[in-house]
Design a protein around this nucleic acid. Structure first.
Length: 591
RNA sequence: GCCUCUGUAGUUCAACGGAUAGAAUAGAAGUUUCCUAAACUUUAGAUAGGAGUUCGAUUCUCCUCGGAGGUACCA
């Protein structure tokens, strides 16, 4: 049992014994003592004043005395204002470390028969352009969240809905037909997703020129948009696609194939993956059907022009369009269809959508509609809503060429890491140096994006954001690599000799930090927050570096002390590695 | 207009309603005959403004001001 739990239990028992009041163990407020006060754990006593009918100081002293008497681990106590600081007996710390040290997955829970099945949707790309920085945040959050949920004993299915059909891909297809001159990824040497993205941009460029020309002839903007031959052609292409036109479908398959090959490369490099991929082209018809069945059940209604709507005003929302007058589906329709297929494929207990916060309203509506259509998890589906990544100039805009491309970004990170470490890698084999640069570059990027509270907008400054010093991914990796270096040099050692070691303050602080990991992991799972893991890992590394600076390890002459410090270092390294793995980060053995 | 989110050192980020609001970076000053200095130490610097609830408010409620997003046929 962890010390914290022991104290909570003790306080609950104490309040019962002294004041006859019932207190839930979980409600007891226990935290690490601030460093300016004496003690290891602090109990907030304010909540018990009502039961004790005494002041905070007296109550604190009474509880402290009781704990000292009845909880073996509690050696001393002091009370400052309403805070009861407990000092844990020194002998407890080494025992605690040794009790943790055999559990290689300390803090992780295995999935069992009673585990909930959680489906996490993330990434959700459109197939008309390559992934950008916003997707990177999405992918890393989705992956990390999935890993954290798994570590908390849930069964997790990672899923991706690919928006592979619609006017956007038709625009790229049309541009390719008109101006592509048969270009392929092979002929151009370009990644498929980038090639398609170029044609999307090209379409937009020609389209805007067209609009300008039409407006010069005296049309209004709206009239010009209506009259644009290019847009007409694109719409015609979409119509043909829906009618299963062989030629259009063939081109569509080919071009999407290029995009998928490109995406796969990017995903692989980013280190994310999926258990099941759905395609909008397979799900949108299902959505239509469901909407029509909802129409029969009276959940939807049809307007005079033939369009189908849901009236959500009774839930404080609006009327929502689900099928256009011409019978084509919208985004919402597709999401309903996807939900149906997923429900058919998996016994889902909980559905989490990792999607940007600009879609908050969409998911509010989706939840309501799924619930009305009879999906048991519809009502409490979770929209894991994260904030946007902004650039110093403001929002990323693809039309203005201010998007930060995911592939370019990863290249830059890895190159910077290689440059920054050229000297220190001088004695490494080329391959290892490249591998370490990859880990460090991506580690810096992942940590940077994940350490921030997901729901907040964040700022990415290409020039300044990526640093390898301070509160960064490489800081954690460096700490780990340094520990591994010590372990390599130390070779085999007798762990049991640690038993008679006497830890000092910095060492007990480290053990306490390590023992806190299960709580942090559980809380990260409850609150869906990779940032908690990132902040914890930073804290642990920081604490270790402070210890490392003035505590000799291998050079320690006292055998017990040396064995203890080696074991402590090993467990810190392991904990760091396990923690950042939840963020998709890898740890180099040397750097 | 209406709805949602958001406002913390110069900057980028922390802080289950708990003690003197923490880090990093930029600034100033230091630490290496010693296990990796991508490290460590010292220093200066912030809760947008105003009411309220509370023993206690960055956190909860209300108002004002600022920023972002959404708002029925884009995803």
């Amino acid at each position: 049992m962890s010390l914290e739990k022991e104290v909570k239990k003790g306080v609950a028992a104490c309040v019962k014994a002294l004041y006859g009041a019932d207190v839930a163990e979980e409600s007891v407020q226990v935290s690490a003592t601030k460093k300016e006060f004496e003690g290891n754990l602090t109990v907030v006593v304010f909540p018990y004043l009502r039961a004790s009918h005494k002041g905070p100081e007296d109550t604190g002293r009474e509880i402290g005395a009781w704990l000292q008497e009845n909880v073996p681990a509690v050696e001393k106590y002091n009370v400052i204002k309403g805070f009861l600081n407990l000092t844990i007996a020194q002998t407890q710390w080494v025992d605690l470390l040794l009790s943790i040290s055999d559990d290689e997955k300390y803090g992780f829970k295995e999935a069992g028969p009673d585990s909930k099945l959680v489906m996490v949707e993330y990434s959700s790309p459109n197939t008309n352009k390559p992934l950008h920085l916003g997707h990177v945040r999405n992918n890393l959050l989705g992956y990390s969240l999935s890993e954290i949920l798994k570590a908390n004993g849930h069964k997790v299915v990672k899923t991706n809905i690919v928006n592979d059909r619609g006017i956007h891909i038709c625009k790229s297809m049309l541009a390719w037909k008109k101006w592509g001159e048969g270009a392929t990824p092979e002929s151009t040497g370009k990644k498929g997703d980038h090639l398609i993205g170029d044609f999307y941009v090209s379409f937009d460029k020609h389209y805007r020129e067209e609009l300008k020309a039409l407006q010069a002839q005296g049309m209004s903007e709206d009239e010009a948009k209506e009259a644009s031959p290019l847009m007409k052609e694109a719409r015609e292409m979409l119509r043909k696609w829906e009618q299963n036109d062989a030629e259009v479908r063939e081109l569509w398959r080919t071009m999407n194939g290029w995009v998928y090959a490109g995406f796969d490369e990017t995903y692989k490099r980013m280190g994310v993956n999926f258990d099941k991929i759905y395609y909008e082209s397979d799900t949108y018809l299902e959505g239509k059907e469901l909407v029509l069945s909802g129409l029969e059940k009276g959940i939807m209604y049809r307007k005079e022009d033939g369009s189908v709507w849901a009236d959500l005003t009774d839930a404080g929302l609006d009327h929502k369009l689900l099928l256009r007058a011409d019978g084509t589906s919208v985004y919402m329709t597709q999401d309903i269809g996807t939900a149906k297929l997923r429900f058919r494929d998996y016994p889902i207990d909980k559905m989490i959508y990792v999607v940007g916060n600009e879609q908050n309203y969409h998911f509010q509506v989706l939840s309501l509609l799924l619930d009305r259509l009879g999906f048991k998890w519809g009502k409490d589906l979770t929209h894991f809503s994260y904030g946007m990544v902004n650039l110093p100039e403001g929002k990323m805009k693809s039309r203005e060429g201010t998007v930060v491309d995911a592939d370019d970004l990863m290249d830059t990170m890895i190159n910077d890491a290689a440059e920054a470490s050229a000297e220190r890698f001088a004695d490494m084999e080329k391959e290892e140096a490249a591998e370490v640069a990859r880990m460090v570059g991506l580690g810096a990027l992942k940590y940077f994006l994940l350490k921030v509270d997901p729901r907040r907008d964040m700022l990415f400054n290409p020039k300044e954001s990526i640093d390898f010093n301070g509160n960064t991914g490489p800081f954690l990796q460096y700490t780990y690599a340094r520990i591994q270096s010590v372990m390599r040099k130390a070779g085999a050692y007798d762990k049991s000799s640690a038993k008679s070691a006497i830890p000092d303050e910095k060492e007990t602080a480290l053990i306490q930090k390590i023992s806190d990991f299960p709580n942090v992991l559980a809380e990260a799972g409850r609150s869906y927050s990779p940032a908690l893991i990132a902040n914890y890992a930073y804290d642990l590394a920081k604490t270790y570096n402070q210890f490392y600076y003035d505590h000799p390890i291998m050079k320690e002459e006292n055998g017990a002390q040396k064995g203890f410090r080696l074991e402590l270092s090993r467990v810190v390294g392991r904990t760091l590695k396990n923690a950042v793995a939840l963020l998709g980060m890898e740890m180099p053995e040397r750097m």
